[in-house]
């Protein structure tokens, strides 16, 4: 396995997900498969190829600093499972 159970637990924790034991097994296998698949790229000979920061040969895609109307608040909050006082409402966050 290229991804360990500990790795999956760590990633789940960072994403605030609680996984059952079965899910942990399942994702460890699936994520390993994905990483193995991606690792095939390591077999390609890249000698003489310059490192790249972007897959496309583009640079400097900018826009002008001009204000356009934003969305209606109702529209923006449509997907929120819970809302209050014009805001998305989430469980209490303690600092």
């Amino acid at each position: 396995m290229s991804v360990s159970k500990e790795d999956v637990k760590h990633i789940a924790n960072l994403s605030k997900l609680n996984l059952t034991d079965e899910e942990l097994e399942k994702y460890t296998t699936e994520l390993s498969d994905i990483v193995n698949f991606a690792n095939e790229l390591s077999n390609i000979d890249v000698d003489g190829i310059k490192p790249t920061a972007h897959i496309l040969d583009i640079k400097n895609v900018f826009r002008k600093d001009e204000v356009q109307p934003s969305y209606d608040r109702e529209e923006i909050l449509k997907n929120a499972p819970s809302k209050d006082a014009g805001c998305v409402s989430v469980p209490k966050v303690v600092e």
Binding site: S82, D84, A85, G86, C87, V88, S89, P91, K92
Partner: peptide
């Protein structure tokens, strides 16, 4: 910005 809602105890998000 996160605003604490003293009434409901939830946290409100202003984006």
């Amino acid at each position: 910005k996160l605003i604490h809602d003293a009434y409901t105890g939830d946290t409100l998000v202003d984006m």
